[in-house]
C-alpha cells in the first residue's frame, strides 16, 4: 500500500524540507550548547555556595577573637628565688613558681608567678580592675564557675576586664562582652596549652615565694 506522504511530492520540496530540518537541528543544537553552559555554570555556583555554607556553619567555638593578642617565646622555667618580672599585666606566661595556684574564684590579688603556672596547665584567668561594680563582678563569677578558671582582681591593668590564657590575652570594657565566653571556649585547656592534662587543683593557695 503506498504511503500518502511519499506518494507524489516533488524533489525540490523534499530538499527544502530537509534543509529546513537541518537548520532547525543546528539551531536547537546551539540552544542546547548555550543551555548546557548555563546549566554547568549554575551548578558550579550552587555547589560552591553549598560548600561555603557548610564551612561557615561548622566552627563551634565561633566568635570574633581578632582582638586577642598573642605572645610567643615565653619562658617555661621553674623559679623559686626572687619574683619573676612580667612585661604584661597580668602576665600571659613565662618563667614561674613550681607550685601552680589552685583554680577558683578569688577576691584578693593572687601572685602572678603562681598563676602563670596555672595558665601553663590550661587555665583561663579572668582579671578585673578593683572596684568593678558588683553586678559585673557577678557576671564574671558566673563565667568563672567552671573547672580550670581563675578569677581575681589585678591593680593597674590597662583595661577594666582581661581574659588571659598561656600566650593569649583579650582586653574588654564590659562584663557583658560575649567575647569573654568565646575566649574561654577557645583557650580553656585549648590547643595553646603547654601542659594539657595537668591539674589545676592540688597546687597552692598560699604565696610560696621567699
Amino acid at each position: 500500500m503506498p504511503r500518502p506522504d511519499r506518494s507524489s511530492t516533488g524533489g525540490n520540496d523534499q530538499r527544502a524540507a530537509k534543509l529546513d530540518q537541518l537548520r532547525k537541528e543546528a539551531r536547537s543544537a546551539d540552544r542546547r550548547r548555550t543551555a548546557s553552559l548555563w546549566v554547568v555554570a549554575v551548578a558550579i555556583v550552587a555547589l560552591v555556595g553549598g560548600l561555603v555554607t557548610w564551612q561557615i556553619a561548622r566552627d563551634p567555638a565561633g566568635g570574633d577573637l581578632s582582638a586577642v593578642k598573642s605572645y610567643d617565646n615565653l619562658g617555661r622555667e621553674h623559679v623559686t628565688a626572687g619574683k619573676a618580672d612580667y612585661p604584661q599585666t597580668p602576665a600571659v606566661g613565662g618563667d614561674h613558681h613550681p607550685a601552680w595556684w589552685n583554680c577558683g574564684i578569688y577576691t584578693e590579688e593572687i601572685p602572678e608567678y603562681h598563676a602563670v603556672h596555672s595558665l601553663e596547665h590550661g587555665a583561663v584567668w579572668l582579671t578585673y580592675e578593683p572596684g568593678l561594680p558588683q553586678a559585673d563582678l557577678e557576671k564574671l563569677q558566673k563565667l568563672a564557675s567552671q573547672e580550670f578558671m581563675l578569677l581575681s582582681p589585678v591593680k593597674g591593668q590597662d583595661s577594666p576586664i582581661k581574659a588571659t590564657a598561656w600566650g593569649k590575652q583579650l582586653s574588654v570594657d564590659s562584663a557583658d562582652d560575649t567575647r569573654i565566653a568565646d575566649f574561654i571556649r577557645t583557650y580553656r585547656q585549648g590547643p595553646q596549652t603547654p601542659e594539657p592534662g595537668a591539674a589545676c587543683t592540688g597546687g597552692t593557695t598560699t604565696d610560696l615565694a621567699p
Partner: peptide, 29 residues
C-alpha cells in the same frame, strides 16, 4: 523539550542539592 530557563532552574536545583551533599560529605560532623 525543556526551555532554556527550565534547564537553568533544573540545574540550580540539582547544583544546590549536589553542593549541599558534597558540603556534607566534606564538612559535616
Amino acid at each position: 523539550r525543556l526551555s532554556v530557563s527550565g534547564w537553568i532552574a533544573f540545574a540550580a536545583a540539582v547544583g544546590l542539592a549536589l553542593g549541599a551533599l558534597l558540603g556534607w560529605v566534606a564538612f559535616a560532623p
